[in-house]
């Protein structure tokens, strides 16, 4: 979707705010939200593409005025409610309780099996690479044009490189297609390519000299030139 998350080339957002000696987590809730993501996505309650899309559908004003981990909280809540794992009303009621008594502790529960599997997940990852029988449609050096599409759902084809000419720089393996996987339409794995775009092709007269941008794109985002 043409959402606010698709930020490449947006102007007027201001300077980069670099925090010196930044901690990994700024407070306990950032760590709790991060860990909750690992434990829920890690157990397959939703997938990475559903997670990302849940952030993209936030209202633009909310997206731009909320913190990174608030985005995560939004999408975890949304996904778990949609999957029927938690209920909106019970979540709201419990939130009210913690607002009234902020010092109240979270109930503790030991789950050594989950601890072991999450450690394994952190160390080994969860690749979305898939074997496919087809050969890649494009080769290194092929000239391609990105499609001029504006899907209402999730996509990883950024707006700033739509309907642009580029050259295939690298051919990667096939990966789960986010456009399908975010919407319960299966994995539909496709080859991914690193496509090189000259800055002038993307930004016209506003391009900086001697710049190229590489974007990783699934095969169905591209057409041959």
């Amino acid at each position: 979707m043409n959402g606010v998350h698709d930020l490449g080339g947006m102007q007027g957002l201001g300077g980069v705010d670099v925090e010196g000696n930044e901690p990994v987590f700024h407070n306990p809730w950032e760590k709790a939200i991060f860990g909750t993501m690992l434990a829920t996505m890690g157990q397959g309650m939703y997938n990475l593409d559903e997670f990302r899309h849940g952030i993209e559908v936030m209202s633009p004003a909310h997206y731009l005025t909320s913190s990174y981990y608030e985005h995560w909280l939004e999408t975890i809540e949304k996904n778990l409610i949609e999957k029927g794992i938690i209920d909106r009303d019970e979540l709201d009621a419990r939130t009210q309780e913690f607002l009234k008594d902020p010092a109240a502790p979270v109930p503790q529960r030991e789950d050594p099996e989950l601890a072991e599997s999450l450690s394994r997940l952190v160390r080994s990852g969860a690749s979305t690479r898939r074997e496919v029988s087809a050969k890649p449609q494009f080769e290194v050096g092929d000239r391609v044009r990105t499609r001029n599409v504006h899907p209402r759902g999730h996509t990883r084809l950024p707006q700033y490189v739509r309907d642009k000419q580029g050259v295939v720089e690298r051919v990667y393996d096939a990966f789960v297609l986010p456009d399908a996987n975010a919407h319960g339409e299966g994995e539909n794995p496709q080859y991914v390519y690193s496509v090189r775009f000259e800055a002038e092709e993307v930004w016209g007269d506003s391009a900086e000299p001697r710049e190229v941008v590489y974007v990783d794109l699934w095969e169905s985002y591209l057409e041959p030139l």
Binding site: W29, T36, L38, T40, L73, L80, I85, P102, Q108, R109
Partner: peptide, 23 residues
């Protein structure tokens, strides 16, 4: 945000779906 994060974690713990030690 803190209250919502704690509420979410608490509900998942009570349903036996996550462990606080694992997180």
């Amino acid at each position: 945000i803190s209250a919502r994060a704690k509420a979410l974690e608490s509900l998942l713990v009570e349903k036996g779906l996550i462990g606080t030690d694992a997180i």
